[in-house]
Design a protein around this nucleic acid. Sequence first.
DNA 1: AATGAATGAGGATTCATTCAT
DNA 2: AATGAATGAATCCTCATTCAT
Lengths: 189, 189, 189, 189
Amino acid sequence: MKPKDEKKLQAIFNATLSLTGQEGIVGLTMSKIAKTAKIGIGTLYVYFESKEELVNELYRQLKTGGTLSMIDDLKALPVKPQLLEVWKRTLQYRVENHAQMVFMEQFLNSPFISEESRGLSYQFTAYLTDLLETGQQQMIIKQADEAILMNLLSGYSRQLAAHLVDTKTPLTEKVINESFSLCWDAIKS
Amino acid sequence: MKPKDEKKLQAIFNATLSLTGQEGIVGLTMSKIAKTAKIGIGTLYVYFESKEELVNELYRQLKTGGTLSMIDDLKALPVKPQLLEVWKRTLQYRVENHAQMVFMEQFLNSPFISEESRGLSYQFTAYLTDLLETGQQQMIIKQADEAILMNLLSGYSRQLAAHLVDTKTPLTEKVINESFSLCWDAIKS
Amino acid sequence: MKPKDEKKLQAIFNATLSLTGQEGIVGLTMSKIAKTAKIGIGTLYVYFESKEELVNELYRQLKTGGTLSMIDDLKALPVKPQLLEVWKRTLQYRVENHAQMVFMEQFLNSPFISEESRGLSYQFTAYLTDLLETGQQQMIIKQADEAILMNLLSGYSRQLAAHLVDTKTPLTEKVINESFSLCWDAIKS
Amino acid sequence: MKPKDEKKLQAIFNATLSLTGQEGIVGLTMSKIAKTAKIGIGTLYVYFESKEELVNELYRQLKTGGTLSMIDDLKALPVKPQLLEVWKRTLQYRVENHAQMVFMEQFLNSPFISEESRGLSYQFTAYLTDLLETGQQQMIIKQADEAILMNLLSGYSRQLAAHLVDTKTPLTEKVINESFSLCWDAIKS
DNA sequence: AATGAATGAGGATTCATTCAT
DNA sequence: AATGAATGAATCCTCATTCAT
């Protein structure tokens, strides 16, 4: 990759996200991306060697620039408030960046994904697992297998965000608190 | 659909599921399906008018023959045992039929899905919503918005099953009970 | 060819003519012929070894059963009345059997035509040439090259019949007489 | 149509005409056209969206660039000399451009023809009808129905040209004059 | 660096023909 | 004799990628 123009790069990524939202990753073609990004097809190949590279690069950017980046300032908080804040931010991010979520999900099941990209999937999980472990050590979270706990949080968050977007329900404080309350009741010891 | 040979029809569906599991719905081609099902490409078009029809028909069959069919005998049970049994069966079904789950998920985000197929998505949800409502009337389930409750169950179940398959963890009674215990703590009033 | 059932054979020919009239010889398929003739595709191959044979056979039948058969009783007439009668019958035949005309024309330009079929094209022409020659010997027809005369008659007849069918104009005595009058003025010496 | 390279466009049209001449419009395939025009199949689709568009576009070009364009300078001539000149030019054009004539005829009976293309068919006819009407007003042409007159001219011209090409007879002045003489005798009052 | 015309491998679909019933 | 399911070669068309400008 030899990014020359940051604006063009963003236009390409935005076009890719927008098109995936509309027709799914199945209908994604290089010429549509170029047209939507208002550049020539040839130019696309100046920025990315192939469709596969484009799509993996976008995935990497979303992973590192997305949920992962939003937790750095929270690590000092106690477990429950930290979890609430993570819950809130994650829901917010997922609702506000639905196109990104759709892209990532479809990408994970596509033949385009590289081994390297697949590795990225688990970094946020790792953070959450750590947090839950801390809670268990403090005796405030159930002593169940971490995967059992983790999957509730991540699966619920994913599904709820999708539901809110699908039904165009706004993400109010009430929804955040009610849903987090369920989570907490589920995992607290 | 003009099913002439039930065995061939099943071979086609199995081939489609198997291929989707390997390369995702993006990599699904008619010739691969035919080759995997050990029939001629032309034969595929004797059974289905197009790729779209094939894939929608398979989805319909999975929806009506899958989770939906497993709940008829439970409706007499009290809410909590009924929910536990549904939880158990759903997890079991999802773990044992992972290819089907992957197919359905990818299909929902593909450009192949017809309006009619999209309508099928919500029947199991409707059953669960009913059950939760009954629980609320009996004052044993939280008075939260049903979507808030529903999404926890469905999102968790989906994620947990995927995790078990991914990590090749067997679905033991312990896992079923522990995970259901989380669910129940989350939604009980 | 092993014609077993004359009715079925005619049903096949009628279906072929009807379909050619609707979509041209380009859109002619064996399965459409079978469906229109209300027989199984397999049965078609009991009557004809191939599409090519079917279509050549039909052509032969039209040629020998059509214009060629209508002139036997006229050969005794004097030139002008004979020509008028041929003109009349030919126009009538062409207007009433337009589907046949379309089929023959398209067939002549298709890759299906066999050498043998191509030979059939010229029998009617030969009769007309003879008749014109007789007229020339009797000094009532111009001493021009026969092809020059012939092509006027055949080209005009073809075009006029097509025009009448196209504009749904009925073939009245007036039209027959006026058009023949033109022909006669053209070729008389 | 987005003509990028005029030479390539002409190569495509020439290939199409040549192939139609050989095997008829039935045997016309996109890959044969590409191969004959010495371009890639994909390139064909840069110039034309579909086989149908290609073939309709060619028809339009032949119609507007062919017989229609050859009559502008004649409109000042008196009726008979004008008709003779049109007769001559039309014959010449048809003999010299036989592939075009075959293509247009087959195209008219193909399922490819669009409504728009069908409309083009009648412009030359309209010119001739006008000319004949003028002749009728000047009392030098028979007062017969114009269609009766028209079809003789057009049908004869078509047939004669086809005959000349078929028998490889050169189009001499003698042929032109003799045939026109027949026409004139037919229609003069 | 930017472009888009050119390319052909690959995908969906059709259709003449075969063959077991 | 009659049938139509089964077949795959051949067709139309798409799309990732290249390359000359």
